[in-house]
Amino acid sequence: MIRYLGKRIIFMILSLFLIVTATFFIMKAVPGGPFTSEKNVPDEIKAALEAKYKLNLPLHEQYLDYLKGVITWDLGPSFVEKSSTVNDMISRGFPVSAHLGAQALLLAIFGGITLGVVAALKHNKWQDYSAMLIAVLGLSVPGFILASFYQYFFAIKWGIFPIAKWEGFEYTVLPSLALAAMPIAFIARLTRSNMLEVLGQDYIKTAKAKGLNTVTITVKHAIRNALLPVITYLGPLLANILTGAFVIERIFGIPGLGREFVISITNRDYTVIMGTTVFYAIILVVGILLVDIAYTLVDPRIKLSDAGRE
């Protein structure tokens, strides 16, 4: 187990290194720079600016400098927001994004599993059909359309929830719902099909023959076995919620990290793009490792070990 974790962490660092390298060079290959939008900058000022931010150095030196920065967790200053560093922006934006993401994640997991289980238990009855209708809508309507739709009805028409901004719990409801819609739908469908398969298994019949009631059979014997593929999906789900948040945060005007990321790209704010990318990559890689560990907790047949060893 410890050996396995060590190995995994080494691979994680390796993939993070590749991500940093790839983003760095792709970003440099894009034409334009952080100061191209500022009009009428005399050449000497531009040169001074570039010298200040070390943009005049050869590419490989900039790259090595940056790598050093990442290792010491100093992601550099923002080119556009002169007053703050990237570290500041992350510590300012991430709590908001994490709150929104966690809320959406919990909603997606619990909502999706509940919908899926109900649909499977009431197979081919109205509960099944309505749950699957919700799921199809959730899968096929993009989050940003859903977000505007919520804003129109819940905020403008009925005035139940505030339309945008981030000032309290009621502000979090609409964006969480918009962000969670797709994963809820996906998890519901996944859970339903797995539950149906598991409920047809022989061991469910064994459980029935023991005289257990339906609730015990469902909770103890069926759901646990049906959840394995859902756990597999949690890794990609994390990525979905992170990237989904970019758009949703913009629509609802939420001061999260996703919004900073989107703005930084249009501004060619090199250090912010790099910083947020690295940060998101770390979250994702750690998340995937956690998912793999979660597997062993649910399925005793899976042991984390080196290939070929028990």
Binding site: D202, Y203, K205, A209, N225, R301
Partner: peptide, 14 residues
């Protein structure tokens, strides 16, 4: 009751 296939009649996660 005892069933035919012991490979599938026991719950793998308990």
């Amino acid at each position: 009751m005892i069933f035919q296939d012991p490979m599938t009649s026991l719950n793998p996660t308990l």
